[in-house]
């Protein structure tokens, strides 16, 4: 315990780096997932081809190898060098974005046809339908899976330790090498990863509850952190329609 308390500032700074890469990677993955996922629902063949091309390419590529490629191959192919943190954010964002795009596409396609017909009867444009009806309803469907993806992404950020970024894993390795305290060094890292994951889970579940409140599946007053202790609504997944 003393070992860990003494090195807490080191572990916290490593955790900070891990968190920054997680958030930047998640932001990139989110934007890619939304754009590519929506392209995949269009009738236009070219749009769908772009979506499929992106998803199949980056779903099938290991984020670690992609990061190595950007960090080591790009400087040889071009006159540019990529900052290691940036390379990791790109690799993770592209990789997780490909999974996210499938989630977005499926959630949009799961919005009941009857809802689309109502927007046609109100003569809405494609964009208005998407913005006012389709995305707000698909959003509640996406969030649980997005939660899993964010946590996967956070744990995958450990790959940056292999290209010299001082993240949480790197800090643990260095402390072990310096002191030989293998058990304490890695247990400390495990605990900090676990705490970060819990923070992300709480954040995602608050977003989920808000989305369900907006669809009238939870009472409007059911807000705040304590609400998380109550069980989720039975209709939260699967559209909630009779």
């Amino acid at each position: 315990m003393d070992f860990f308390i003494d090195r807490l500032p080191l572990y916290l700074s490593g955790a900070g780096t891990t968190l920054v890469i997680t958030l930047l990677g998640a932001a990139l993955a989110f934007v890619l997932a939304m754009v590519v996922g929506m392209l995949g629902t269009l009738r236009n063949r070219a749009a769908r081809a772009v979506a499929t091309g992106y998803t199949e390419t980056f779903r099938g590529v290991a984020a670690l190898v992609l990061m190595y490629w950007m960090a080591f191959a790009i400087p040889q192919l071009t006159p540019y060098e990529i900052d290691p943190v940036f390379a990791a954010v790109l690799a993770l964002g592209l990789n997780v974005g490909a999974y996210g795009a499938e989630v977005v596409r499926a959630a949009i396609n799961a919005v009941p046809r009857a809802q689309i017909e109502a927007t046609i009867a109100l003569n809405m444009s494609w964009w208005r339908r998407t913005r006012s009806v389709v995305l707000p309803q698909a959003w509640a469907q996406m969030l649980p899976t997005f939660g899993n993806l964010v946590i996967e992404l956070m744990k995958a950020t450990a790959i940056v330790s292999l290209i010299g970024v001082a993240d949480l894993t790197r800090v643990a390795q260095e402390q072990r090498a310096a002191t030989g305290e293998t058990i304490a060094a890695f247990t400390g890292a495990l605990v900090v990863y676990f705490v970060i994951a819990q923070l992300l889970i709480v954040g995602m579940r608050l977003l989920e509850r808000r989305a369900n409140r907006r669809l009238g599946r939870l009472p409007a007053s059911d807000t705040g952190l304590w609400a998380l202790l109550r069980p989720p609504p039975a209709t939260a997944i699967g559209g909630g329609r009779r």
Partner: peptide
Amino acid sequence: FQQFNLFPNMTVRQNITEGPVHS
């Protein structure tokens, strides 16, 4: 419609005003 098809993500007011305002 037979099944009403109201938008569950909007209040009654928004359901009624969304078409007139945006279409």
